[in-house]
Nucleic acid binder design. Structure first.
Lengths: 66, 66
DNA sequence: CCAATATGCAATATATATTTTACATTATGC
DNA sequence: GCATAATGTAAAATATATATTGCATATTGG
């Protein structure tokens, strides 16, 4: 499922996918695919993205429904 | 780094590593290695573990320090 | 103490996240 | 409209999470 929260948080910070990618040390494609919901990212990467965007795991990646 | 919060949450629920493993659909070894801090689990697995233990991502996996 | 259970640990195999490269499509400013 | 930047997408290669098996060690209950 698409991660719209992550995309919104990124745009709030006026970042391109590539900006975020460089900040967290991955490729632009990886960021795009995570936003598109086509990747199941690693915990470390999730945490790095959160720090880069000033959010927490729950704010960007939590899902209530089991 | 060892994930002591996850281990505590598991023991609070009186679960063995194997119980949790079955609940979230992985191997006992995978749970053990995550608790030992030797794996960088996927987001989906983290969320499944959280649901099984009645916690959220921030409670079990968040790290303040960049 | 003993027996059973739970956990640690290591090697190999497999699945999948991530990279790399390249091109197509979409948005944005002028 | 045009030019440029931003994003989507796809195939092949690589890195790494996870599975499997087996055995060692620790822990717990009797």
């Amino acid at each position: 499922m698409k991660n719209i929260r992550m995309k919104v948080a990124r745009i709030e910070r006026d970042m391109k996918q590539e900006d975020l990618a460089q900040l967290v040390g991955v490729t632009r494609q990886t960021i795009g695919l995570i936003e598109a919901g086509k990747y199941n990212p690693s915990l470390k990467l999730c945490i790095a993205i959160c720090h880069a965007l000033g959010k927490t795991l729950d704010e960007l990646f939590w899902e209530e429904t089991p």
